[in-house]
């Protein structure tokens, strides 16, 4: 295990935030170990321009797989191109994001490397020359610590678990070229249509702040306070399952066991009771604020701040108070 490898996530020719986080995590592991290097694989078309940035963010080695056929490559193609390269490098630790892209690739890459997967790590450390990953399990009800026991592991890291360090433009890196074998990029999956959500709001997965509404909002047409507060705080909108099942909000906004897991800096729960299946999706949030008319609701025990009262009275007053202080002005 001489190099910790990561894989760049690139969208529209730019690095996604998770890539900064992964390089920060890999860099601090390497520095703590004193002997490890940081390598990153970037795969796509015409991505050579990203090399200096990847170096400044902490990579010692940048391995480029650059070909027209690799633009937006599906997971099976990524595994076929990156797998043999990392095998050749005898990679023992590969960090990916616990993101849509990372999850699609992690299992395939682990099979290629004949290693394990540690999913959704929230903390990484080096102990006795080994990478130790901490995961939050049972929705934050417990934590567990895992190490690779055999040939190493692909570790997926929860987005926002690592605070990205600023780049150091003076850092330089070595560049390797990954050869792309004929036929390895054959596509078996075809995208017919991509409907970007046209909402102007922040996407849940990336959001630093989430404002979520539950059945206590009282109806599809009574979600206004959730949206207004989200706009004021620059937050993404979330929902409980009760609300999604009632058709008040789309499933993509559902947080919890059968929805998404989020871990924002601030989570505001409006009219949500805090059933265990909901808590598992948000319990690792930094600060939790709950507004609920029932002081005994389970969410109130989990919250850092439990505001007792009617959401339809408190939220408009809060938005007014914040805008008096200049928060959210112009939003």
């Amino acid at each position: 295990m001489s190099t910790i490898w990561t894989l760049a996530e690139i969208e529209g020719g730019e690095l996604k935030g998770i890539t900064h986080e992964l390089l920060t995590a890999a860099r601090s592991l390497a520095d703590a170990s004193g002997s490890l290097k940081v390598g990153i694989v970037a795969l796509g078309h015409e991505i050579g321009g990203l090399v200096p940035q990847l170096g400044s963010l902490g990579a010692d080695i940048v391995a480029l797989a650059d070909a027209p056929s690799l633009a937006n490559a599906p997971a099976d193609v990524v595994a076929r191109v990156v797998g043999p390269f990392l095998q050749g490098q005898q990679a023992r630790t590969v960090l990916l994001g616990h993101t849509a892209t990372g999850k699609d690739i992690a299992g395939r890459l682990a099979v290629r490397l004949d290693c394990g997967v540690i999913a959704d790590a929230t903390e990484l450390a080096v102990e006795g020359g080994k990478i130790v990953a901490t995961r939050s399990i049972f929705g934050g009800g417990m934590w567990s610590r895992a190490v690779a026991a055999g040939n190493g592991a692909v570790v997926t890291v929860r987005p926002r678990a690592v605070t990205p360090a600023p780049g150091q433009p003076s850092r330089s890196s070595e560049t390797l070229t990954i050869s792309v074998a004929d036929g390895s990029t054959t596509r078996r999956v075809e995208t017919l249509e991509l409907k970007q959500e046209t909402s102007t709001t922040v996407s849940l997965g990336d959001a630093e702040v989430v404002v979520a509404g539950g059945r206590g909002m009282g109806g599809a047409d009574k979600f206004g306070p959730v949206e207004t507060l989200a706009r004021t705080l620059g937050a993404a909108v979330g929902a409980s399952r009760a609300v999604v099942d009632s058709g008040w909000r789309p499933h993509k906004e559902q947080i919890g066991q059968t929805g998404r897991t989020v871990s924002p800096k601030l989570y505001v729960a409006l009219g949500i009771s805090g059933a265990i299946q909901h808590l598992v999706g948000m319990r690792t949030s930094g600060t939790i604020i709950a507004i609920n008319s029932d002081a005994e609701a389970p969410i109130m025990k989990v919250a850092n701040v439990a505001a007792v009262g009617d959401v339809h009275e408190i939220v408009p007053a809060l938005v007014a108070e914040l805008s008096r202080q200049g928060v959210g002005a112009g939003a």
Binding site: A110, G116, V132, W143, S144, R145, V147, N151, A153
Partner: peptide, 9 residues
Amino acid sequence: RQVLVTAAG
């Protein structure tokens, strides 16, 4: 087994 859980709490 490729992954070992060493602690939990």
